[in-house]
């Protein structure tokens, strides 16, 4: 039987195919993650026009930079989000420059930087996406442990799960999410 319990196995396969130059893999990645990419860009930049522009740039960049995806890291979602974060930063820099130029022209006074919205939309929305995808009980266990700050014992009793299972979900889940965050950082800081 070739049934994948872990959606990451299939997602990692997409990364392999993309690296090999399979155009259909890019189309599939767009179907799966363009909404994630677009929502991050929209929250970060505020306008639909910029958000769609960034979405377009991200997938064009994904194709051109397909040799930089790392299939051994599992799902390429974090890789796409890293590219998104980078592009969003580019748009912000550009906005800051034009704002500064405008102010310089207007007042010829060196100006304070415009407020930069650094609310980590890329990481936060990727996390929500990953939690949604992770499914239960792991996502619920993580939320109970970190959002509600409950003890593992308490979570085990509430969900009627063995304590060891709860601990395992907390550890595996958090490590997996940490790996995603590192990947975003790796890609976006290039």
């Amino acid at each position: 039987m070739h049934v994948h319990d872990d959606p990451d196995v299939e997602a990692a396969d997409l990364a392999v195919r993309l690296r090999a130059g399979d155009q259909e893999a890019l189309a599939e990645m767009y179907r799966r993650w363009s909404t994630l990419v677009h929502t991050i860009a929209l929250r970060s930049l505020g306008t639909r026009e910029d958000a769609e522009d960034v979405t377009q740039q991200v997938f064009v960049a994904a194709w051109r930079g397909r040799h930089t995806v790392q299939p051994d890291l599992g799902s390429p979602a974090a890789w796409l989000v890293g590219i998104t974060k980078h592009r969003v930063a580019d748009v912000r820099t550009e906005r800051y420059r034009s704002h500064r130029n405008m102010q310089a022209v207007a007042s010829e006074v060196a100006t304070s930087p415009v407020t930069v919205d650094d609310s980590n939309w890329a990481e936060r929305l990727l996390l929500v996406h990953e939690l949604e995808r992770m499914g239960d009980p792991r996502a619920t266990v993580l939320r109970m442990a970190f959002v509600e700050d409950r003890t593992h014992e308490d979570i085990a009793q509430t969900l009627d799960l063995p304590l060891g299972t709860v601990k395992s979900h907390v550890r595996r889940g958090l490590i997996a999410l940490r790996d995603r965050m590192k990947e975003v950082e790796r890609v976006s800081s290039h």
Binding site: T39, A51, E52, F59, L127, V128, R143, F146, L177
Partner: peptide
């Protein structure tokens, strides 16, 4: 990462790009 999970919104209104983007 744990702090990000703690701060993650309970749900998100996902917004797809328009059909023209692809």
């Amino acid at each position: 990462t744990a702090a990000l999970v703690a701060a993650a919104p309970p749900s998100v209104t996902w917004q797809a790009p328009t059909d023209a983007v692809w």
